[in-house]
């Protein structure tokens, strides 16, 4: 069987199955730890604020992407932002179709660079770019310091 022949059954050719046998434990990082600990304990998002150029960034970084100064200040920015864009998702990353699509959106915060991508729970007829949305958080005793401490964003 050569390259130019059409193969419709993969196992017709000799093969071995393989995998990369690892899994991962990612650290939140220095700025990530501050962000998720604050969200877990104080119910608020924080941004990093550059003491040299004033740029605020969410998710926070330990450095300013604009001027490369080290970040010394993290500031609260509340839980409410503006819906910058959204989409209705019908397929997941394994190619499986959902019976009902879910809405994913990018939420931005006034005066802050960056944003948060998350699930958006808003009635279809009310969904609109520019609308105010706020984060609905899990009860404090159910939070574990990760992105799923946010259940979704909803209309405020």
């Amino acid at each position: 069987m050569s390259f130019k022949d059409s193969i419709h059954l993969n196992t017709k050719l000799g093969y071995f199955e393989g995998e990369i046998p690892v899994n991962y434990q990612y650290t939140l990082g220095v700025a990530g730890n501050i962000f998720f600990k604050t969200l877990m304990e104080k119910d608020e998002f924080i941004a990093s604020e550059c003491s040299e150029c004033g740029t605020k960034t969410i998710y926070p970084l330990i450095y300013c992407e604009e001027c490369f100064a080290p970040i010394e200040k993290y500031v609260p920015i509340g839980l409410v932002g503006e819906l910058y864009s959204y989409t209705h998702c019908y397929y997941d990353y394994q190619g499986i179709r959902h019976e009902k699509p879910h809405v994913l959106g990018l939420v931005r915060f006034k005066g802050v660079q960056g944003g948060i991508v998350h699930r958006i729970e808003v009635k279809p007829e009310e969904l609109k770019i520019g609308m105010k949305v706020g984060a609905k958080l899990k009860p404090k005793n159910e939070r574990n310091g990760g992105i799923d401490d946010i259940i979704h964003f909803e209309k405020v």
Partner: peptide, 14 residues
């Protein structure tokens, strides 16, 4: 390290 890859890269670069 507690730091992420980009955080480590920053510390060395700076």
């Amino acid at each position: 390290a507690e730091e992420t890859g980009p955080e480590m890269a920053y510390l060395a670069s700076k």
